[in-house]
Amino acid sequence: MNTDKKTLLAATNLSMTYKTRSRTFRSFEHHALKGLTLEVKRGETLGILGRNGCGKSSLLRILAGIVHPTSGQLELQSGLTRSLLTLGLGFRPDLSGRDNAILSAMLQGKSKKQAKATLETIQEFAELGKFFHQPVRTYSAGMRARLGFATALKTDVDVLLIDEVLSVGDTHFKHKAEQAMLEKLNGHQTVVFVSHNAGQIDKVCNRAIWIEGGVIRGQGNTKEVAKSYRQFMNELDKEKGV
């Protein structure tokens, strides 16, 4: 790895190929990532831009250590803790918001006691009222997202990987979430933030990478990357006659 101590994560030539069975003994191959090289430095907020299906989520899963890349290498500083925040997944619909919040905290390595101690702030932040004690299956999509965000905010890790969180909830909650995120970002938190929304990336990140079709199309200054991404999307619109 780079001898630079500031580098927390270094990915070299990452590729990810999915194989799914389509018919008996036949499979469909999808190359989600095709040789990506990138670094994440301590304390920075790295934005990853790209439209749906460009490989953003695959990249996050690899960076979070959930899956291995099909090829390529991921090096990280020893003892590095990472957490991937995605909303709507992982909740058990039959359990109450409270129980889900406890489980989420425990899954991230907290003891039951510590998990219970965070409940009050989560309940307050999520603004679920009495629904907090009802099964999550009775929640609206927005309520589920609020609970997800509130639980996610409580994690204490070296690198936080965030998947399109701010695009949920009503305007009030969106502002609140953005503010809470910025507070975390202005601290020493290292964040990798993924979105298909150039404006959002521009607002919170200090460096950006634009991925299209599994390869890096642009990286560096957030404003410039966001600009070329927007241009690309506009051209796409024209092409399709939208």
Binding site: I66, S83, L84, L107, Q108
Partner: peptide
């Protein structure tokens, strides 16, 4: 699947 997608446990 949902949880496995989200966290390395």
């Amino acid at each position: 699947k949902g949880l496995i997608n989200q966290i390395d446990i």
